[in-house]
Simulated scan of single mutants.
Amino acid sequence: MGIESALDWKHNIGELKYNLGGNFSFVRNTILEMNEAYRPYESMKTTGHSMGQFFGYKSEGFFSDVADIDSHPEQRFSEVSPGDIKYVDHNKDGRVDEFDIQAIKGTAVPEIYYAFNLGMEYKGFGFSALFQGTANKSVLLNTQDIFVPLRDNGNISSFSASRWTEATKTTAKLPRLSTQENLNNYKNNDIWIVNGSFLKLRNAEFYYNLPEDIASKLKVGSCRFYIRGNNLLSFDSIGMMDPEYLGRGYPTLRSYLAGVKISF
């Protein structure tokens, strides 16, 4: 199920020329039937959900102390300590294990794609810009050193400032940190899956076109001086990294160009 639309508008007001345009698409899908492996619980099945649906564990905060751990169903991923993630015993069997996996918030496939452009020109001076974005998309924060720090002697970033400590146990948004491997805290769960929607200013350009009489005297058909920028702004919920690329590697670059375009 989906819709798609596009609109472009151009108009002149005296010597002022301007244009506006955009496109929008919305697509929602549901897996009606597929040959998937046996799952002991309906909540573990991908059938009935969207493509790219995230599956994992639903959290209910962090263990506050040893008594909290002892009173909670046993979590069988690794030994837990205060500050570790507390998971919901979804199937109510008295323990938390691989059979408590369920659909959790969001899908990796965006449901909405959109873009819009604008431009204007007055007496040779002009401006144009292109914005693009996606919505109804989630991402998994699993980049080493940024979202999963200290493991294998990795670095730590400011992202971990909201981690659990004895002083922040009532306000913490992330589990405790440790240099030891922690199989409990880094399972796919609703803490690490966040809103991945974004709006980006892909490019913008300011320019000046020489008047035709001056261009003709220079023996050229037209001449444009311009300053252009690419990947200029991103409005998103991630902040630490490019929402389109959360892996470790060469980062997305912001670039600026200045030049002259001459046609004969």
Rank of each mutant, 00 (worst) to 15 (best):
Gly48Tyr: 06
Gly48Lys: 04
Ser50Ala: 15
Phe54Pro: 06
Phe55Lys: 07
Gly56Asn: 02
Tyr57Met: 12
Lys58Asp: 06
Glu60Asp: 15
Glu60Arg: 09
Gly61Leu: 09
Gly61Met: 00
Phe63Asp: 10
Asp65Pro: 01
Val66His: 06
Ala67Trp: 03
Ile69Cys: 00
His72Pro: 00
Pro73Asp: 09
Arg76Leu: 15
Ser78Leu: 02
Glu79Thr: 14
Glu79Pro: 00
Val80Asp: 11
Gly83Leu: 01
Gly83Lys: 03
Ile85Asp: 08
Ile85Leu: 14
Lys86Glu: 05
Lys86Leu: 02
Tyr87Ala: 05
His90Ile: 13
Asn91Thr: 07
Lys92Ser: 12
Lys92Val: 07
Lys92Gly: 03
Lys92His: 09
Lys92Gln: 12
Asp93Leu: 02
Val96Met: 01
Val96Trp: 08
Asp97Thr: 01
Glu98Thr: 12
Gln102Ala: 15
Ala103Met: 06
Ile104Pro: 05
Ile104Gln: 08
Lys105Gln: 09
Gly106Thr: 06
Gly106Trp: 01
Thr107Gln: 14
Thr107Val: 13
Ala108Pro: 00
Val109Gln: 12
Glu111Asp: 12
Tyr113Lys: 11
Tyr113Trp: 08
Ala115Phe: 01
Ala115Ile: 07
Asn117Phe: 11
Asn117Tyr: 12
Leu118Asn: 11
Gly119Leu: 00
Met120Ala: 15
Met120Cys: 14
Glu121Ala: 12
Tyr122Val: 08
Tyr122Gly: 02
Tyr122His: 10
Lys123Ile: 00
Gly124Met: 11
Phe125Pro: 02
Gly126Tyr: 11
Gly126Leu: 04
Phe127Met: 05
Ser128Glu: 13
Ser128Leu: 03
Ser128Lys: 13
Ala129Ser: 12
Ala129Leu: 00
Ala129Lys: 00
Phe131Pro: 03
Gly133Val: 09
Gly133Trp: 08
Thr134Asn: 10
Ala135Ile: 09
Lys137Gln: 15
Lys137Ile: 10
Ser138His: 14
Ser138Pro: 04
Val139Cys: 09
Leu141His: 06
Asn142Trp: 05
Thr143Gly: 11
